[in-house]
Design a protein around this nucleic acid. Structure first.
Length: 455
DNA sequence: CTACCAATAT
DNA sequence: CATATTGGTA
């Protein structure tokens, strides 16, 4: 059961954990391989009381937020309750972030200031969500946040990111890099408690019990969250390898993401394959499209088996629930995408200011993987495959990604020549919400949750 | 013994 | 759902 956990714990992770000091406690069999001292929660006094806003007044003001307190949440901060508290703390963040988001949405482009700071806001949002929330690191101190918000507004995303990175690093003796790595691993919510404390199962997935008195707690590695970035890497890897060689291990290596385990990939791959299968059967974008639509698209792809094959697709992304990670990260509100991957127009009407590189995300890789025997690329399996640069999670928060100002009404026209990287999120966005209509103008897109692999 | 992978669990 | 874990198998 835990054998893999033990076996696959990467050296990197160990290192990161050791130096970060943020790692969740590991005990039991973990000790076999590492002299890492089980690290528990941060000292109670370092945690922000839940009765207190997790967003400093400065930050709140910065975002025009009206932060209320959540006294009711203030609970025992006992050692054993630490985890739970942390989680609540995270939720608290979520709420506040949502608040921010909503405010922004409502204000829309109206408010120039907000609009202008959108990228910062967005970055903040995502950072918080994906790092604090997803990573399960609830240890953000007031001072840090304050520093983050700064007396003066942050000028650049980079600054924000750096600050944030430092924030994490500040917790332990870890370096920024390590912190980033740690979180970059996108380990998310601390799952799974140990046997002992069934306690108040109300909240469901409780955190990993703090070391408490008796050890014997085997903490599991937090769930990996397949962020668009990660997924992109994944898809790229698979594409390069071709179905034939696309096995977990290889993919993992190609992805070159620190801390990513084979299991992670295997699991994802499994799902991905299911997705591909679905698509193959003529049901790519589950959502609306009737098979006919889908089919024609596929047919075209089939006939061309070239990424840039001609295909005219009208994509309309449905509204989404603003509370999933993806929706957060991708910010996919109703949008329309009309593209012609023929190398021509790519019009995007979206709040994101998506751009033309949309073609990139269409089931493009599918034909190469399924519809065609993946010829060219496969000739030199590993040799020619160029592993992308090591995945530094900070990439996930590439400033550029948030550099787009949000514009509500006017459709944004962008050249399709933009680097694909820049539009990673956008791509994923579409990918996730994609609903294809060869014709229509999907007026009332059904609301549905985001999925990496629409079904 | 490792890695795949489909099934199953959380 | 999305991921993790398991267990049979190559």
């Amino acid at each position: 059961m835990n054998k893999d956990v033990d076996r696959q714990k990467s050296d990197h992770e160990q290192h990161a954990e050791a130096s970060t000091g943020l790692r969740l406690l590991h005990t039991g069999d973990e000790e076999k391989r590492s002299e890492i001292i089980p690290l528990q929660l941060l000292p109670v006094d370092e945690l922000v009381p839940l009765s207190q806003s997790l967003i400093t007044p400065a930050l709140a003001r910065f975002f025009n937020l009206n932060v209320q307190h959540c006294p009711s949440r203030q609970q025992s901060f006992g050692n054993n309750a630490g985890r739970k508290s942390e989680q609540r703390l995270q939720f608290h963040y979520v709420e506040q972030l949502d608040q921010i988001r909503h405010l922004q949405e409502e204000d829309g482009a109206q408010n120039a200031d907000l609009s202008e700071d959108f990228h910062v806001n967005q970055a903040l949002d995502d950072l918080f969500r994906s790092q604090i929330i997803a990573s399960g690191c609830g240890a953000v101190k007031d001072g840090d946040v304050a520093r983050l918000a700064g007396t003066k507004r942050l000028q650049t995303d980079a600054e924000l990111l750096n600050t944030f990175g430092a924030l994490h690093a500040s917790d332990g003796s870890s370096t920024h890099e390590h912190a980033v790595e740690e979180f970059g691993m996108t380990q998310s919510v601390l799952e799974r408690e140990n046997s002992s404390n069934s306690g108040d199962g109300a909240t469901g997935s409780s955190g990993c019990g703090a070391g408490g008195s008796s050890g014997a707690r085997t903490l599991k590695r937090p769930r990996l969250v397949w962020t668009p970035q990660l997924h992109k890497r994944f898809v790229d890897a698979v594409s390069q390898l071709g179905i034939k060689n696309a096995v977990p291990k290889t993919i993992m290596q190609l992805m070159n993401v620190e801390g990513l385990t084979r299991e992670n990939v295997a699991s994802h791959l499994q799902k991905y394959r299911l997705y591909l299968r679905r698509v193959q059967q003529g049901n790519p974008f589950s959502s609306c499209s009737n098979s006919s639509t889908t089919k024609s698209i596929l047919t075209e792809l089939e006939h061309t088996h070239h990424p840039n094959a001609l295909m005219r697709v009208h994509i309309s992304t449905a509204g989404t629930r603003p509370d999933t990670f993806f929706s957060s990260a991708l910010d996919t509100r109703p949008s329309n995408i009309t593209m012609t991957s023929n190398g021509h127009h790519s019009h995007v009407n979206s709040l994101n200011g998506l751009s033309g590189s949309v073609n990139h995300l269409l089931p493009q890789h599918i034909p190469s993987l399924l519809l065609q025997p993946v010829s060219h690329q496969l000739s030199q399996p590993m040799a020619m495959v160029k592993p992308p640069p090591p995945f530094n999670i900070s990439q996930q928060f590439e400033p550029r990604l948030y550099g787009v100002k949000r514009v509500n009404s006017p459709p944004i026209r962008t050249s399709a020549s933009a680097s694909s990287d820049t539009h990673l999120l956008e791509n994923m966005s579409v990918m996730n919400h994609a609903e294809t209509h060869i014709t229509a103008t999907a007026s009332s897109p059904p609301r549905r949750a985001l999925t990496l692999f629409p079904h």
